[in-house]
Simulated assay, not measured.
Amino acid sequence: MKITVIGYWGGYPGPDGATSAYLLEEEDVKVLLDCGSGAVSKLQKYIETADLDALILTHYHHDHVADVGVLQYSRVVDMNLERSTRPLKIYGHTGDPEGFQRLGKEPYAIAEAYDPAGVLTIGPFTFTFQETSHPAVCYAIKVESSVSGKSFVYTGDTTYNKKLVPLMKGSELLIAEASFYDGQEAEKYGHMTSSEAARLAAAGEVEKLLLSHLPHFGEHKDLVTEAEKHFSGEVALAYEGLENEIK
């Protein structure tokens, strides 16, 4: 299973960047987790839009869904040019009915509701969910490969929340938001600091922590230094094009 970082900024994209978006690939199946601002432009460096099988969304804040409409248009073009015969499946939750309704553009993009208490299967991937602590209804996602049996967890947006720990058990990687530096008031805004992300990774006993949803201030390398004080595994910063292979 390969995970490629497409966008990693929080709030809005930095110059020539994109906000939250992560590409999963296994056995020719390609799934995008979140589709923030600038994501579709960046995605095309790695795959053709016509080859994308599905999009799964954690929640409907703009920095996670801003390019959903753009992705819908890409499938309109791809199907009309006969580069694809399949509508794009876009999966979201119904905790925000208006947000969910915007996901579909039939017959080119089909909105599908995932059951947060159930399991979603797409090709070799299984997805399970846990609600986070955030102003908008948001779900962390665990992704497991039936090929390798390996898994990783993506927090979406959240404050420090111990309810996420059981979801993380047995996973090799945690992609965690780190919107603030140690000591700042992250909880007030529904987010985590670097040290809180690290404490979550330590409690979940993962092997590697990837810090993402990064702030537009400070020195990002300090996020790693702060996280390493609370987590003994590998800590890395997300950047566009970063690949994580889980075998």
Rank of each mutant, 00 (worst) to 15 (best):
T159I: 11
Y46Q: 05
K188Q: 12
V76M: 12
E207T: 12
Y160R: 11
S84E: 05
G69M: 10
A111M: 07
N161F: 12
E98S: 14
V119D: 08
Y181S: 06
C35Y: 01
Q101I: 10
V143F: 05
P15V: 13
T126M: 08
R86C: 12
L81G: 03
A201I: 00
V143S: 05
E205M: 10
D51S: 15
G7V: 00
A21T: 10
V29K: 13
G11L: 02
I56L: 15
L88Q: 07
T132F: 06
E207A: 15
Y46K: 05
A176Q: 02
L24C: 04
Y73Q: 15
F100V: 07
L23M: 04
Y22A: 01
A140C: 09
A203G: 03
E243K: 13
K105F: 15
I47S: 00
E172A: 14
I47D: 00
G156S: 11
R75D: 00
A186T: 06
Y239C: 09
P215I: 03
G218Q: 06
E144R: 14
C138N: 15
D16Y: 13
Q184S: 14
H62A: 14
S41W: 12
F125H: 08
K162C: 08
D63L: 01
G204H: 08
C35Q: 02
K45H: 14
Q72K: 11
A197V: 04
T19K: 01
E131C: 08
D67Y: 01
G156Y: 00
L237A: 08
M168L: 13
V68N: 02
H213Y: 01
D34L: 01
Y189C: 10
G95S: 14
G118L: 09
M192T: 12
S194V: 01
Y239Q: 14
E98Q: 13
I141C: 12
Q44D: 04
G190Q: 11
G38S: 04
A202S: 15
S145W: 07
L214F: 02
I3Y: 02
T132S: 15
L71C: 07
R199V: 02
L103T: 10
L242M: 14
Y239M: 11
M79Y: 04
G123T: 04
V165F: 08
L214D: 00
Q184I: 03
A111I: 06
G156W: 04
L167M: 12
P116A: 08
I175M: 03
G36P: 09
T132A: 09
D28L: 03
S148R: 07
T85V: 14
V235R: 05
V137A: 15
I3D: 02
V29W: 03
F180G: 03
H64D: 05
K208M: 14
L210C: 10
G233M: 11
I56V: 15
A21F: 07
L164E: 09
K163Y: 10
E172N: 09
V70H: 14
M79R: 13
V224N: 06
A238Q: 05
R75L: 13
G104N: 09
H134P: 05
A54N: 05
G36C: 10
I122T: 09
G38T: 01
F152Q: 03
N80M: 13
Q184G: 08
L52E: 03
A227S: 13
V143K: 04
E234S: 13
T225H: 12
